[in-house]
């Protein structure tokens, strides 16, 4: 592997990792705080991408469309949580699986009704459509750099909110001991609605980011959902720190695996990694519920 290829793949891996972190952050907190399994999280990722593509068409301004799509998906998440999901926190995991699987079917068909079955293009602003030279002889698409920088900034902000603020303290407390937290007078219901909506918004952001790389199409959220589950399990349910580290790890292993190994091996590499880690740390790298 040449140095140029190595640098390029490292950036790709880091970028996948950052995107996975944005998807996983909401998922892992929802698992951790409410013990709720949300299979429809990938649908929010998909909505983000479709909404952004539409808003770009309408407004013509990429950055405005991005913000609108993120907010709109956050609102969808809010409504979902407020109307339906909150009734299911105390139900069995089986009911939660059925409910959110039902949501996937519904969301996929709604998307098909609104946008049709043909993948949409994600138009990019002028400034991001040119490749830049990152080192002698190595060109790298500028939108990928933008995605990476934006993703890192959001991930950092999220990490600081969770680790350093009072709200973050409540969220972490909720993720490790729900009853104790509500006994302390924290409105767990409100915290959870906010977390869910924010998680939906972050998933949408990740969906928008992946738009220019893969196509904006129905079902695009499902492979991401699976990867996010793997990240959640490796990082430890409810741990944002674990999700960050696991996401970068999965991003790197997956990206380099595809370059270095034949497809039969690279396709299962991250699952083998998951199995290996869980064999030694059954509750993930940073279990939040001790």
């Amino acid at each position: 592997m040449t140095t140029g290829l190595f640098v390029e793949q490292s950036l790709n891996g880091l970028q996948l990792g950052v995107m996975l972190f944005l998807v996983t952050a909401g998922l892992t907190l929802v698992f951790g705080i409410m013990d709720f399994i949300n299979l429809a999280h990938g649908s929010l990722f998909m909505f983000g991408a479709f909404l952004a593509a539409t808003f770009v068409k309408i407004t013509g301004i990429f950055w405005l469309a991005l913000i609108l799509a993120v907010l709109a998906t956050g609102l969808i998440g809010f409504v979902m949580e407020f109307l339906v999901l909150r009734r299911f926190y105390h139900r069995s995991h089986l009911d939660q699986v059925l409910l959110t699987f039902g949501f996937i079917l519904v969301f996929n068909d709604i998307t098909r009704i609104i946008w049709g079955s043909i993948p949409l293009p994600m138009p990019l602003p002028e400034i991001l459509s040119m490749p830049v030279q990152i080192m002698p002889g190595v060109m790298y698409p500028s939108f990928r750099i933008a995605i990476l920088v934006l993703g890192l900034i959001v991930a950092l902000c999220l990490f600081l909110i969770i680790e350093r603020t009072r709200l973050g303290m409540w969220i972490r407390a909720g993720a490790s001991d729900r009853q104790m937290t509500s006994a302390l007078g924290v409105n767990v219901g409100l915290v959870f609605t906010l977390v869910f909506a924010a998680g939906a918004a972050l998933a949408a952001l990740a969906g928008i980011m992946s738009g220019p790389i893969s196509a904006v199409q129905i079902g695009m959220g499902e492979p991401i959902l699976i990867l996010a589950l793997v990240v959640t399990v490796i990082g430890g349910i409810g741990s944002v720190k674990g999700a960050l580290i696991a996401a970068i790890m999965i991003g790197m292993v997956d990206t380099f695996g595809r370059v270095m190994f034949p497809p039969a091996i690279s396709s299962i590499l991250i699952y083998l990694l998951m199995v290996l880690i869980l064999a030694f740390r059954p509750r993930g790298l940073f279990p939040a519920n001790v």
Binding site: L98, F103, N108, I110
Partner: peptide, 18 residues
């Protein structure tokens, strides 16, 4: 699939015992 999905959701929502 929309109809089917709505059916699943309706059943789980309306019948808390599944």
């Amino acid at each position: 699939q929309l109809v089917f999905g709505l059916g699943i959701i309706a059943v789980v929502v309306l019948f808390p015992g599944g």
